[in-house]
Structure formats: structure tokens, C-alpha cells
Design a protein around this nucleic acid. Structure first.
Lengths: 114, 114
DNA sequence: TCGTTATTCAACCACTCGGTTGACAGGCAT
DNA sequence: ATGCCTGTCAACCGAGTGGTTGAATAACGA
């Protein structure tokens, strides 16, 4: 699992870490501030931060005894690119769903006229 | 880790599984066909397919002794939506990078004139 | 210098993951 | 019926994950 996209995706595949990113999207924060919403030890949050840092999703500075974290969304661009390759597949199925619903609205029972 | 977005992301956070999805994007395939590019047992691929199915990323039919798989990209839409929320963050940093490079090109050493 | 605050480190635990192997089951074809 | 494909299941293994606790580090405040 050494490729970067896998590292990014697995870093994102955890609700706590996504919560941390959401919090950082509202601005820089210290470890303690980031940990506050969660019912887990500071050490656990520190580990999550290490995962995010390793994935390049955050950077950590040092200000006195605090280690403020900042969001670095760059790796997400790769995720967006990758998933974008599949857009036509899900849009196509949504289209089919919409068509189906439209047929229902028009009162065409079953929509099997072809 | 019961939420759907986490399930989807962790299913995608494996290069073998992403490879399988890429193959399915080119059309329906059987387990054997999907396994062929990989240097691992059929059982291992079967497990990967179970993960993908559980994440709703594929469906499996049954035709005689074959179990053909089809891509179902719908869950990826949620990923695209989520990551899209952060677009401005990475675009902003790319902009800053571009600005910085532009400054370098213009021969403004350091770009610290403000 | 001593205590407090903020954070990390190290060891440990239960659990999950990605892989293996061997046995098994469903559906052809002879 | 027998055997051959195709695929899954079950048990196992080593490595990784997400959490805990307690000790260690670092910087400030008195």
C-alpha cells in the first residue's frame, strides 16, 4: 500500500480524521482543540494527526508548547481526479433513475414501451 | 466505522480493488478475468470483490458457473461531493504556488514586497 | 527551581486486513 | 456417474490499526 492515492484514501476513511479536517477547514487549531469534540485520549488524537501528516493532509508547526495544525488539501486533488474518472458511470445511472422516475410521472406504467 | 462514506473510502483505499474497478469500467467481467492481472489467489480476489460488493461499488449476477461483476459507481458520487467541499482549499494553494512561480518568473526576488 | 500545561512516546491490547491453503459446492460436458 | 471448471468458505497467519495507560519531553509561569 505504498502508493500515494491509497495512503490518502485510507487516511480519509476514518470519521474522526475527516472530522479533524473539517475542523481545520475552519482554521488552524492545536491538538487539544482538535481533541476536544472526541471522547478519546489526547494520545489517540495525536496518532490520527500523525496519519494525516504522513498523508500530507496537514502540517504541524510549533509555537511555544503548542503544535498548531493546518489543513493541506492538496492530496485531495488527486482523489477528486481519480473519482472524477468515474463520474460518467454514476451520472449515467442517475440519469437512468431520473428517466425512470420521469416515466412514472408521465403515467407510463412500467416504462417498457421499447 | 459504520458510516457509508468510510466504508466507500476504505474500499477504494486499496490498489488491487481500484484496479478491479478500472477493469470493470471497461465492461462486465467474471472473477477469473478480474483475477488474471494479479499475482494472488482467486480466493484473495474473491475477498476483494466481497468488500467492493459490501460497499455497493459492484453487483454480482450469476450465469451458469460464472459470477459476472458489474460496476456500480453510485457510492463514488458521495466521495466526489465530500472531497469537493475542500476544492477551494487545494485550488487556493495551487493558486499561491502559481503566484509564487509567476513572481519568480518576473524576477521579483523573494516576492516579499508587501 | 518547581509546578503546570501541551504533546508525544512506548508498551500493550483486541481487532481488522490482506494474503495463503485446502476443502467444498454449483454447473457444464463427456 | 465422473470429472472439470469456476468460485466460495473456513481456518490460519503476520502485519497494521485504533484505542488505552503511564512515563517522558518541552516550554511557559510563579
Amino acid at each position: 500500500m505504498t502508493d500515494r492515492l491509497s495512503t490518502t484514501l485510507s487516511a480519509l476513511a476514518d470519521p474522526t480524521r475527516r472530522g479533524i479536517l473539517a475542523q481545520l477547514a475552519r482554521g488552524e487549531a492545536t491538538v487539544g482543540e482538535l481533541a476536544e469534540p472526541y471522547d478519546m485520549s489526547l494520545a489517540a488524537v495525536s496518532k490520527h494527526l500523525k496519519v494525516l501528516e504522513h498523508a500530507g493532509l496537514i502540517t504541524r508547526g510549533r509555537e511555544a508548547q503548542w503544535r498548531p495544525c493546518r489543513l493541506k488539501a492538496a492530496p485531495m486533488a488527486e482523489v477528486a481526479d481519480w473519482v472524477g474518472e468515474y463520474r460518467r458511470f454514476w451520472e449515467q445511472s442517475l440519469d437512468r433513475l431520473e428517466d425512470y422516475l420521469a416515466e412514472l410521472q408521465k403515467g407510463d406504467p412500467g416504462g417498457t414501451k421499447n
